[in-house]
Nucleic acid binder design. Structure first.
Length: 289
DNA sequence: AAAACACGCAACCGCCTTAAC
DNA sequence: AGTTAAGGCGGTTGCGTGTTT
């Protein structure tokens, strides 16, 4: 069943007579959207190839399906992801990987395409800034112990949680436990290493040693952050991440360990006389590499 | 003001699975 | 059991737009 596809760069709707049977590609027009919406309203969705023909749309069934599911469906939620949604994405991705449609099932109104785009544009960008792979232990550490707790802080702050002033590792993860536990249910919750599993153990009292290695609270700097779901919370967490992996002083005066993956860098920094205090910007880190 | 660059996102591609015949 | 078409999914592309130089 060969079809002739009109070039993506050619958006002209003024088809020549001999092109009447050509399938269109590229951005959808308002007319096409209305045609699809009206047809589905009358006849329902499914059997997309037949639907495309019956509706008089010169599109593939696949294209119609994609347009409907990702854009035209009335329950599609638009706009930025909330902190809850971002937290959920990070958590579910940590256990399921790139199973976008599966992840999307737990975010009502969000499409797999949108989540995939979010991951690629936001999350992978930060992995790149940390100069690590998204599958690396370094990145997972940053995600679990800093980005996710930071998101939970934002969720609680937005909800007016008075305990949110305490931004310690323990309190952040403790908060994450309650939020993640109530955010959704996980039909395949079998990942012992996942952040939420960890945080669930946190609620039973063993979180501090699990997450921080020692019974020490890491004091992270309040940055006058906004309590809305927007903002570059990852950037802030990046800074905390590097601060935590340098040998900075916890509240009791002890020292944190330095991860194996980062020890080389840390040594390099100390070689050139760089302390944790002036490592507030990733830009500086890149320059020093 | 203009060119270069970076980013976000809609849409397409190709592969795999499933269902119908 | 084999074939084929449709649906579903993850990966990738390319365009529009905003930002930086």
């Amino acid at each position: 069943m060969d079809v002739v596809l009109q070039s993506r760069s050619s958006n002209s709707m003024a088809a020549e007579p001999e092109e009447e049977t050509e399938l269109r590609r590229g951005p959808w027009t308002v007319d096409e959207d209305l045609t699809l919406i009206n047809y589905i309203a009358d006849h329902g969705e499914g059997r997309w190839n037949a639907l495309a023909r019956a509706a008089g749309l010169r599109r593939t069934g696949k294209s119609c399906r994609l347009r409907w599911l990702n854009y035209l469906r009335p329950d599609v939620k638009r706009g930025n992801f909330t902190a809850d949604e971002q937290l959920l994405i990070l958590d579910l991705h940590s256990r399921w990987g790139n199973r976008w449609s599966k992840i999307a099932q737990h975010l009502p109104g969000r499409t797999d395409n949108e989540i995939k785009n979010y991951w690629r544009t936001r999350v992978q960008k930060h992995a790149k800034q940390l100069n690590c792979d998204v599958g690396s232990a370094t990145f997972k550490d940053a995600m679990r112990y800093l980005w996710m707790p930071r998101l939970v802080e934002r969720i609680h702050a937005a909800a007016g949680d008075p305990t949110i002033g305490d931004t310690s590792c323990a309190s952040g993860v403790r908060s994450m436990a309650t939020t993640a536990a109530t955010a959704t249910t996980y039909p395949e919750n079998n990942s012992a290493a996942s952040a939420v599993t960890t945080s669930r153990s946190a609620s039973s009292g063993s979180f501090t040693s699990e997450l921080c290695g020692e019974e020490k609270n890491l004091h992270v700097h309040g940055s006058g952050e906004k309590t809305t779901s927007g903002g570059d919370w990852m950037q802030e967490a990046d800074q905390e991440f590097w601060a935590m992996h340098m040998q900075i002083q916890p509240e009791d005066g002890g020292l944190f360990h330095v991860d194996h993956e980062l020890s080389g860098w840390v040594q390099g920094f100390s070689d050139v006389g760089v302390s944790a205090d002036n490592l507030w910007s990733l830009e500086d880190i890149w320059k020093m590499q």
